[in-house]
Computed example of a mutant assay.
Amino acid sequence: MFERPTAGPEGLQYVSDFISADVERELIARIRALPLQPFQFGQFEGKRRVAWFGYQYNYLSRRLEQADPIPSWLTGVIADVEAFGGPSTEIGQVLCTEYDMGVGIGWHRDKPHFDRVFGLSLGSPCKFRFRKSDGSAWERFTLDAEPRSLYMLSGASRRVWEHSIPAVEAPRYSITFRTMIERASRAAGQ
Rank of each mutant, 00 (worst) to 15 (best):
29 A>S: 09
79 A>N: 13
190 Q>I: 07
85 G>W: 07
161 W>V: 04
36 L>W: 05
7 A>S: 08
127 K>N: 09
56 Q>H: 11
77 V>Y: 05
81 V>R: 08
101 M>W: 03
140 R>A: 12
130 F>C: 14
148 R>Y: 04
82 E>H: 13
125 P>R: 05
128 F>Q: 14
106 G>I: 06
60 L>M: 12
72 S>N: 09
117 V>W: 05
60 L>E: 06
83 A>R: 15
117 V>R: 05
114 F>N: 09
20 S>C: 01
189 G>N: 13
121 S>D: 03
91 I>Y: 03
166 P>V: 00
77 V>M: 04
81 V>T: 06
81 V>S: 07
126 C>P: 01
35 P>H: 10
13 Q>T: 10
86 G>Q: 14
83 A>C: 10
158 R>N: 14
55 Y>M: 06
90 E>S: 12
83 A>Q: 15
103 V>A: 04
161 W>C: 04
7 A>F: 06
169 E>L: 13
71 P>C: 03
118 F>R: 02
188 A>N: 10
126 C>I: 01
116 R>H: 12
84 F>W: 14
167 A>N: 05
2 F>I: 00
130 F>Q: 06
139 E>V: 12
139 E>H: 15
139 E>F: 12
54 G>E: 04
156 A>E: 15
32 R>Y: 02
109 R>S: 10
24 E>D: 02
150 L>S: 11
111 K>L: 10
120 L>C: 11
69 P>L: 08
189 G>M: 11
77 V>T: 14
146 E>M: 15
58 N>V: 04
96 C>R: 01
92 G>T: 03
12 L>H: 06
31 I>T: 02
8 G>S: 09
104 G>N: 10
18 F>D: 02
2 F>E: 04
34 L>P: 01
79 A>M: 07
149 S>Y: 11
50 V>T: 12
145 A>D: 06
69 P>D: 00
188 A>T: 08
102 G>A: 03
166 P>D: 09
151 Y>P: 02
80 D>V: 04
175 I>H: 06
31 I>A: 00
95 L>M: 08
58 N>S: 12
120 L>K: 09
172 R>P: 01
33 A>K: 08
68 D>Q: 14
41 F>P: 03
175 I>L: 12
88 S>F: 01
34 L>Q: 11
178 R>Y: 08
132 K>V: 01
17 D>Q: 11
40 Q>G: 01
181 I>S: 13
29 A>V: 02
22 D>A: 09
139 E>C: 13
81 V>N: 06
94 V>H: 06
58 N>M: 03
94 V>G: 08
126 C>M: 06
182 E>S: 14
113 H>V: 01
115 D>P: 05
46 G>R: 01
168 V>G: 13
97 T>F: 00
106 G>A: 13
182 E>C: 04
54 G>D: 02
106 G>N: 09
47 K>V: 01
56 Q>S: 11
27 L>I: 00
166 P>R: 15
2 F>K: 07
92 G>L: 07
164 S>A: 15
9 P>S: 07
6 T>P: 05
89 T>D: 05
57 Y>V: 02
190 Q>G: 10
124 S>T: 10
157 S>I: 09
167 A>E: 05
4 R>S: 09
30 R>T: 02
143 L>V: 05
7 A>H: 08
50 V>G: 06
179 T>C: 13
124 S>I: 01
53 F>L: 11
111 K>T: 10
105 I>N: 08
161 W>F: 14
130 F>S: 11
157 S>K: 13
189 G>W: 08
